[in-house]
């Protein structure tokens, strides 16, 4: 790690600092703070209107339900896939490792279309079979869970893989040689060392899940009070000229996102501790 002793500050230091702060203020800080201003412009009225609107409350409930499912699925598979990628060799491992990142780069609209082609009720690949088994995916909650799981899939894995690689396998092997079973080794040795990375990944997945818009709109169909999530209700309320409600709902979503970031920043080990 580079040394972090104090370097002399030149005029350039202040110019660069000024440019960066202005840029970030105009692009992020000012616009985001206006959300709070629009929400609380006349006290808690807007928030109250939003939270007593059945369309908003049912959307928030759906979003929370879907996010919990998506995060749970991604945590289980994330831990599993991370362990497989770092602890075992098998053909195609590097391809799998590259493909895991794909969901972060794919357009949400493309995700929605892809899921519709696979799980659409009438002419999807699996949709009709699932439908006749009494399980509707597209335009129903399972489809929204799938879309949300898709877009937040890599987040846990991306946090865990570097940590698992870094800690190595010495302790795990020691535990195994002393007679611990795989589950005991995982619970007593591996899990404690990846704990914070896992929390970090879960918080990020949660933030991402709450905010998904495009994929959920296509696979869910945006049916009010049925498959309309919180982000979709923001769009509708804004276009229906119920802008205070749109702002209040946005404020709630933004609040959760920023809270998640603060949690993550506090938890994250400092990469360049001050005064080292």
């Amino acid at each position: 790690m580079a040394s972090h002793r104090v370097r002399p500050k030149t005029a350039g230091t202040y110019v660069r600092r000024g440019i960066v702060l202005t840029y970030l203020f105009l692009l992020v800080v000012w616009p985001v703070s206006l959300i709070a201003q629009h929400t609380f412009g006349n006290g808690f009225g807007n928030l109250h209107t939003a939270l007593t609107d059945p369309a908003v409350t049912s959307a928030l409930r759906l979003t929370i339900y879907v996010s919990i499912w998506a995060v749970a699925i991604n945590t289980v598979f994330g831990v599993g896939i991370s362990l497989l990628l770092t602890r075992y060799t098998f053909p195609g491992r590097s391809i799998l490792s590259a493909l895991i990142d794909l969901p972060l780069s794919v357009s949400p609209v493309v995700v929605g279309l892809a899921l519709l082609l696979a799980y659409g009720g009438t002419n999807g690949l699996f949709g009709p079979a699932l439908n006749s088994a009494g399980f509707q995916v597209a335009f129903a909650t399972p489809g929204i869970v799938l879309a949300t799981t898709f877009v937040s899939l890599p987040l846990v894995i991306r946090e865990l893989v570097p940590v698992l690689t870094e800690i190595g396998t010495d302790q795990e092997q020691a535990a195994r040689s002393l007679g611990a079973g795989p589950w005991q080794t995982f619970r007593r040795i591996t899990l404690p060392s990846i704990r914070w990375a896992l929390v970090y990944g879960v918080v990020l997945s949660l933030a991402r899940s709450l905010g998904e818009f495009g994929a959920v709109k296509i696979i869910g169909g945006n049916i009010a009070q049925q498959t309309q999530t919180a982000t979709l209700v923001v769009e509708q309320k804004y276009q229906d000229f119920e802008q205070p409600t749109a702002y209040a709902t946005s404020f709630l979503l933004a609040l959760i996102a920023v809270a998640a970031l603060v949690v993550v920043t506090v938890l994250r080990p400092k990469e360049n501790p001050d005064g080292d």
Binding site: P31, V32, L34, I35, P108, L204, A207, R208, L210, G211, E212, F213, G214, A230, T231, L232, V234, E235, Y238, A246, Y247, S250, L253, A254, A257, V258, A260, L261
Partner: peptide, 10 residues
């Protein structure tokens, strides 16, 4: 971290 629709509104 901000939902994209909120980003647009912001």
């Amino acid at each position: 971290a901000l939902p994209t629709i909120v980003a647009g509104l912001v």
